[in-house]
Amino acid sequence: MARHRMPFSWSFSPMAARARSSTHRLASAALVAAGLCLAATAAQAETRLCNRTSIVTEAAIGVMASDTAATRGWFRLDPGQCRAILQTAEAPGRLFLHTRAIGEPQNTSLGQPEHVTLCVGEGDFLVSGATACARPNTRMVAFSEVRPTVVEAIAVLFLSEAADYDLPQARRAGIQRLLARMGYDPGPVDGLEGPRTDAALRSFIADRALPADAAASPDIFDTLLSAWRAGEGPGFAWCNETGHRIMASLGVDEGGRIVTRGWYRVDPGTCLKPPVELGAARVYSFAEAVDRDGRPVQAAGKPLVFGGDIPGCVRPAEFEIGGTDCAAHNARATGFLAVTFDGRRRASVRFRE
């Protein structure tokens, strides 16, 4: 599958290069790793990472001195949020950053240049000797070298979109983006206030029975992400409750015939909303489980598929097929499940083993 790329580039505020002492160049793995540890109390000097994008982001940082490196993560940053990532404004070596998008398709590229590959873990991790992975549940990922702006002993790195949001705009744009992914139609993701965004937010708050001021809550992005992962909101959603990757195909009625399109990737534990016309009375769904290499998963000696009895066509690669004459399109015939929307314009298919 091709990597998704977001329609923006990431930028980092520059600073003048500083000469590093021989002590930094000869730092040991333990010393470098110690430099990544945050103080238990607020420090006078620190390095902050600020998210001026509309994407909920997790970040890992790396410090490299001579041929020694250490990494630490993950730091969750909601749109419009800043966090301290170092207890000093001067890293004990070259500073690197790796980020990953939350609430976007897996393998979404955030547009960062790749300068070095370092080892990361999961959860709250600290990896010394990070130029290679030697422990379970770790992996190598690409990092970008970054240089913060330092003002009055505070160093700041910004994650920025081409839209160049300020922090409050980034927060609003982040809310808009997740509302849109759930089908609430907040209008363009622009970080600006407007009646469509207000109406979409009111609908979401009412559907979840939240307080009227929920948008101002510090946990609003947790609430939005939880709802998105559960497939909530208007429209049609696939939700994958298996341990396998699911490749799904969607069928819609167009001009009296069924048009099928695929494939849509639905990772384990996530939901996905494919594009569906607002006036559609029903949709048709077919899906199959695949392994890491894209091969069909077998269950009881047969491919693990999720469909129904409505005839439709699919092909191995990306496709759009009108009608049910599969042979004419060099496709195979299969059975799709008919899915009807409820009175609130909602429908979902949950894949379970």
Rank of each mutant, 00 (worst) to 15 (best):
N51K: 09
A17D: 15
P92R: 00
A317G: 12
D342Y: 05
R3F: 13
R282S: 15
L86I: 04
E161K: 00
F8G: 10
A209E: 12
R5N: 13
M6F: 12
A200Q: 03
E90W: 11
G191Y: 09
N137G: 03
D309F: 10
V276E: 04
Y165T: 01
R261A: 12
D309H: 12
I258L: 14
D78A: 14
R20L: 13
A327I: 10
G323V: 05
D190A: 08
N107P: 00
L77Y: 08
G301N: 08
A327Y: 06
Y264M: 12
G231C: 04
D342L: 03
P113C: 07
R139I: 01
D198M: 04
L77G: 03
F286G: 00
C119D: 05
R171C: 07
T88V: 07
S226P: 00
R282N: 13
T334V: 13
A300Q: 14
P211Y: 01
G256I: 06
Q176S: 07
R261D: 06
V63A: 02
P303E: 11
A19S: 12
R292E: 14
V120N: 08
G73H: 08
R332P: 02
A200H: 04
G103N: 05
L159G: 05
A287W: 03
V339D: 07
G294P: 10
G312W: 11
A70R: 01
A19K: 09
I205N: 05
P136M: 08
V259W: 12
A216D: 14
A17M: 10
H24V: 15
R72T: 07
C119S: 11
R25D: 14
I258N: 03
T138R: 11
L157S: 00
R100K: 14
R48T: 13
L192V: 06
E122D: 12
I175E: 12
A287N: 06
E145T: 02
A153S: 14
L178H: 04
A60V: 06
G191C: 08
R172N: 06
R208A: 15
M182G: 02
I321V: 11
C133I: 04
H98D: 05
P148S: 04
D253L: 14
L31W: 12
A248C: 11
Q176M: 08
A215P: 04
D190P: 01
G187S: 02
T108Q: 09
Y184F: 14
I321Q: 02
A33N: 03
S128H: 09
A230S: 13
G103K: 01
C326S: 06
E114R: 15
R25G: 14
L31P: 05
V116Y: 11
G251N: 07
T197Y: 15
S66C: 03
W238I: 05
E288M: 15
L49K: 00
D185T: 07
P168D: 09
A331L: 10
R282Q: 14
L192G: 09
T270C: 06
I321K: 01
G269M: 09
L278F: 11
L118C: 04
T23C: 10
D309C: 03
A19L: 13
K302A: 15
T138Q: 15
P105M: 08
G183N: 03
C239Y: 02
I220P: 01
F12K: 01
A91C: 06
C239W: 02
L38R: 08
G279H: 14
I246S: 02
L250K: 06
A27Y: 12
A39D: 15
G187M: 07
A91K: 02
I85L: 11
V339Q: 01
S21A: 11
A91M: 06
T53V: 05
I102W: 06
